[in-house]
Design a protein around this nucleic acid. Structure first.
Lengths: 195, 195
DNA sequence: TAGAATATTGAATGGTCATTCATTTTCCGT
DNA sequence: ACGGAAAATGAATGACCATTCAATATTCTA
């Protein structure tokens, strides 16, 4: 019965959870549905995850872990803050736009309670904002970015724009590619609305 | 009908729902809890609302209705697009920052599920974005805003920044006033990051 | 290969709640 | 003050589902 050893069963459960939760929503998805799609018994879920909520957290961990590691790699290849920001925007939109089901999880399902968001923002999202703030600081030192902006505030603004584009993409059922917005986003972030 | 002298019973139920749902989250709040706080019987809720989900929608309708009507009034007093944008930013942050419980509802609880967000974005949020886009168009005609920006894109970006500030305020438990960010937001929106 | 250790199964459990509706209370016109 | 209509009540219903655990299957060790 049990196939290839190590984490493959756990991975299968996570994959199944992404699909089921994206389609029906966290609260309407039963553990039994996830188990069925993963091809395991209901009880098996509890051998790998403490409970349903932990399973949802694990979904986020896995996705955000990939994001941050790819992000760090990509940033190392960029010298100036300006270039770094461009890469971040592209990476963010590309990764979110790559998997619609996963995007629904990150943009919608992971935000359904204050308790939940609190935990997320304290950990991985916080780390992401920190990286953004660092880039802003670098840009200010290089004289490319205005130095009268609070870097943390700027980081949140950048995140806000990216996050809104991602959510909007999920909600608009058109077949656009999310990363096609990269250039506009970069342009807006650098130049704002004014002439 | 249920509405006598004071339409106050329905209002009391809505008020109670805001408090309970903000504190415990939508899914952990039972209809019985809302009824208790409102001082009515469980069944009475169903004389005013079709079901629990409709009650949540009504919460949003009431809040967003106030927002849009106040917004329109405030916009009429502003002539230039620049002034209008300043007013929108101030109004958005002031209204959200006025009532923490209600803010938790709008920033977190109303975003529970794709289905739910879909309905919101198609209706009132869509209307809000439309107003923002109009202001951008006006600004472009007046020569104050860059005309190479797509107004709908710009509207979403503005909304994204405002929304992120609001969510961040909810999650940071510090005692700041949300509207104190107005000036920074306006400055960022007009000028962006660049020098 | 035996037997122990480990992994998996899935039916049963127990608790939770949204919703209903038979009954009671309040309202109001005459 | 009466009586019928409208409102309100809250206990009962029934559906739902996360989680458990005794039983079974599989893998490992010597």
């Amino acid at each position: 019965m049990a196939r290839n050893g190590d984490g493959s069963k756990r991975e299968r459960i996570l994959d199944a959870a992404v699909v089921e939760i994206a389609r029906r929503g966290y609260h309407s998805t039963t553990v039994a549905m996830i188990a069925k799609r993963a091809g395991v018994a209901d009880g098996t879920i509890y051998l790998y995850f403490k409970n349903k909520e932990q399973l949802l957290f694990s979904l986020f961990d896995r996705a955000m872990g990939r994001f941050i590691s790819e992000g760090k790699a990509s940033l190392e290849q960029a010298a100036s803050a300006r270039e770094k920001l461009i890469r971040i925007v592209e990476l963010h939109l590309t990764l979110v736009g790559q998997d619609r089901d996963l995007a629904i999880i990150t943009q919608v399902e992971l935000r359904h309670s204050l308790h939940f968001m609190d935990q997320l923002s304290r950990t991985l999202v916080g780390e992401y904002l920190g990286i953004l703030a660092q880039v802003v600081i670098q840009g200010q030192q290089e004289g490319d970015f205005r130095s009268d902006l609070d870097p943390v505030f700027a980081a949140k603004s950048i995140f806000g724009v990216l996050d809104e584009m991602a959510t909007d993409w999920i909600l608009s059922h058109r077949n656009t590619r999310l990363e096609s917005k990269s250039a506009s986003v970069v342009e807006f972030l650098f130049g704002g609305l004014g002439c």
